[in-house]
Design a protein around this nucleic acid. Structure first.
Lengths: 152, 152
DNA sequence: TCAAATATGATGCAATTGCATAGAAACAGG
DNA sequence: CCTGTTTCTATGCAATTGCATCATATTTGA
């Protein structure tokens, strides 16, 4: 297919470069805030937030992977660490011994809340303050298009 | 300051979540293509591209850091690896013995070109195909706003 | 029903990254 | 000049990540 072999236009390249740069820059700033406040990094928060939003505060590792776009082996070990810290608990999955539930603990919920106290304002400062409400919506909708499955 | 303590609006939170997710997803897809073609990862490309665009194919590590948003210690060791592979060369900086030049080699230029042959089309496929030209420009301009220094 | 294919998680080991700090040179102020 | 501070790069060591593969359990299908 010809289209696949073409070089991207300048506009597309710009968008791509800005995407990577902006993400790196904002993530860096926000991670620094979290670390400065003595909190673990965003990946821990993402897992906690995902679990907190599930019906019983539990989810399968596979679901978490999809939610936070983590590699299986990385998540497996991240959960080890979080479990060691008492933030999360692994529970056997009835009816399928391969699977398991991962359940957020009270300590996990508490940490998620405390982190949000720093994280939320940081998002506001590094994203919210830079955009109008309309621009924020526009940005989200453009980024969503990048995540749509390719038409082929 | 009150504004700093507030939680972000839903629109802002959406934009932030989409930013991280879209970046992760597209970077993942593109890295997979590069790896599949037997190439090193994007950070190597970024360094090569930055150097290639400099007047004499050379730059200081500090400049590279700013260009690619790398930590100093990571860049230092990345340059070690790239030098080992003959892609760049470190040259003493005349007049300031703390500094150095990093210069791209012919092999480095060649690799950059060959990588672009895979990378360019991949950008097109994972970014270009998802957006119109106008949308790409709009996206870039919104992302640029995120990188503007905060008004305080 | 049984072997092969698939699905889910874990793990050994190498590579990379993060953190703290070192080393060395230049600079600034007295 | 000195001495303390800043700038630029490197590095020891611990933590994390990537890769390949294993282990176990389920599903498929011949």
């Amino acid at each position: 297919m010809v289209q696949d072999m073409q070089e991207p236009s300048d506009a597309v390249t710009d968008a791509w470069v800005c995407l990577v740069r902006a993400e790196r820059e904002v993530v860096g700033q926000i991670e620094a805030e979290l670390k400065g406040a003595g909190f673990p990094c965003l990946s821990w928060y993402d897992v906690l937030r995902h679990l907190k939003r599930q019906p019983d505060g539990r989810s399968s590792p596979k679901e978490i992977e999809d939610a936070v776009l983590f590699e299986q082996y990385n998540l497996s070990r991240l959960l080890d660490r979080m479990e060691t810290d008492g933030l999360v608990r692994r529970i056997p999955y009835p009816g399928d011994k391969r699977r398991q539930w991962v359940e957020i603990t009270d300590a996990g919920r508490a940490l998620q809340r405390r982190m949000w106290g720093v994280y939320g304002p940081a998002i506001n400062r590094f994203v919210g303050c830079k955009l109008t409400a309309a621009e924020a919506e526009q940005l989200a909708s453009l980024l969503l298009k990048l995540m749509q499955p390719k038409k082929d």
